[in-house]
Nucleic acid binder design. Structure first.
Lengths: 233, 233
DNA sequence: CGCGGCTTTGATGTTCATCAAGTAAAGTGG
DNA sequence: CCACTTTACTTGATGAACATCAAAGCCGCG
């Protein structure tokens, strides 16, 4: 269950997001946002955004890790991308449609800041520099998703798996040792292959002494070779 | 029309784009754009944007049909999407990086309007409503590309092919009879399968009396069945 | 006219999905 | 806390889907 934190003291001016996103808002505007925003906390594996619901809020991830995914009727989800702190998790739909085109769920305990969409639109109307920042962020996000999607399309199974492991190691955890925040099934849903073959691929990598596996814990033994496989082979 | 024009040669006020994009520019601003813009004409199969070049211009397609594609070193291009008149062909890179991340080539004779990127940025700074329009258009475009990409990922070969043919029929030509503006190889590069299997798929569809083929000319005989295959089967 | 790219079909092999079956781990309710 | 249920993980066997290779006809173009 999502619990609401009432912010008695405004912390937004210290928020890291400020540097990235609120650069062009005045002190007063930030205070306004801070008073209007709500913060929600989620355990792991909770629904944050439900596909098909009305877009009313502008949301960004403050802490944690989430997946954006398409909820296909037949039960075969497709993971679009993973979002990390400071990413705008409502970014894909918020300026283009009035209902969410995808769902968002937490992979680890996460907190989300929520601002009324009307407030964002008002800032956008009165503050062009803010809007340009917003557009750049939007553009960067979709570029990244698109780039990863094309990359995955190009690669064979081993390449896809190597890319995903490499991504977790470098982009999410900045370490060669980490706890996988996703199931094998979720890796499969992201890579667009079957769960069994993700597992087989991981076993192969283990036998090749490329990685070490114990349950959810992964160690990348040969990062360079993994990267080479991820960029094809 | 009854209105006196300051510049009789300027046609931008009659441009269809005005309704979609320049809604929030003043008469004078449109005249400015009109005087600054350049129009280029391309035969089919010409390079309009070269991957890796510096982003200096804001470009939209006035007439024709183009492909946006990734130029992989090994020679295996990946087509990202097709753009039609009024689409912004520089849209993917223009607000996120300083070099183009993909190439654009004409599939049929096309004309492109080019505006200095600095001018767009200046309008964006002084005219928030314009920027919001721009952001919506950006968002719609990338949403559409992403949606198609996920759809293609989900489908098997017949489904992918059916989707592409259906797309050309409904979105590009609005007719069940049309001249294919792409080679079989290009369909393959878009769908992410081999050229031979696209050809085999088309032969199957022909044998199934789903489509009629004579060279580049295609007739969709059973649009509904094609659509059903495109949404899976 | 000849060259290169596009199209087509057939044959072959590889990759991967699917099915099956079992173990391990993680919730769930009494 | 334990029995029960469900979900995740793993391996093997099988077959289908698809890539690749090969060969030949076709078309447009210099």
């Amino acid at each position: 269950m999502a619990e609401l934190q009432k912010n008695t003291t405004c912390q937004c001016e210290n928020c890291k997001l400020r540097d990235i996103f609120f650069n062009h808002l005045t002190h007063d505007e930030i205070i306004d946002i801070c008073n209007m925003r709500k913060e929600y906390h989620y355990a792991d594996n909770e629904r944050i955004i439900v596909q098909g619901e009305k877009v009313e809020k502008f949301m960004y991830l403050k802490e944690g890790l989430v997946k954006l995914y398409l909820d296909n009727e037949n039960g075969a989800d497709q993971i679009i991308s993973f979002a990390r702190p400071l990413d705008f998790i409502s970014i894909l739909s918020v300026f283009s449609t009035d209902t969410y085109q995808y769902s968002v769920s937490s992979l680890v305990p996460s907190s989300v800041c929520v601002i009324n969409i009307e407030m964002i639109k008002e800032f956008a109307t009165t503050n062009p520099a803010f809007t340009i920042d917003l557009m750049e962020k939007l553009s960067l996000t979709t570029d990244k998703i698109l780039h990863e999607s094309l990359e995955l399309k190009r690669l064979n199974l081993r390449g896809k798996l190597a890319m995903v492991l490499h991504m977790f190691s470098t982009e999410i955890f900045s370490s060669t040792v980490f706890e996988l925040p996703v199931t094998r099934k979720e890796i499969a849903e992201y890579a667009g292959v079957s769960t069994e073959n993700i597992i087989r691929g991981m076993s192969e990598f283990r036998k090749d002494k490329l990685i070490r596996i114990s349950g959810k814990e992964i160690e990348i033994i040969e990062p360079d070779r993994l990267k080479r496989i991820a960029s094809y082979g």
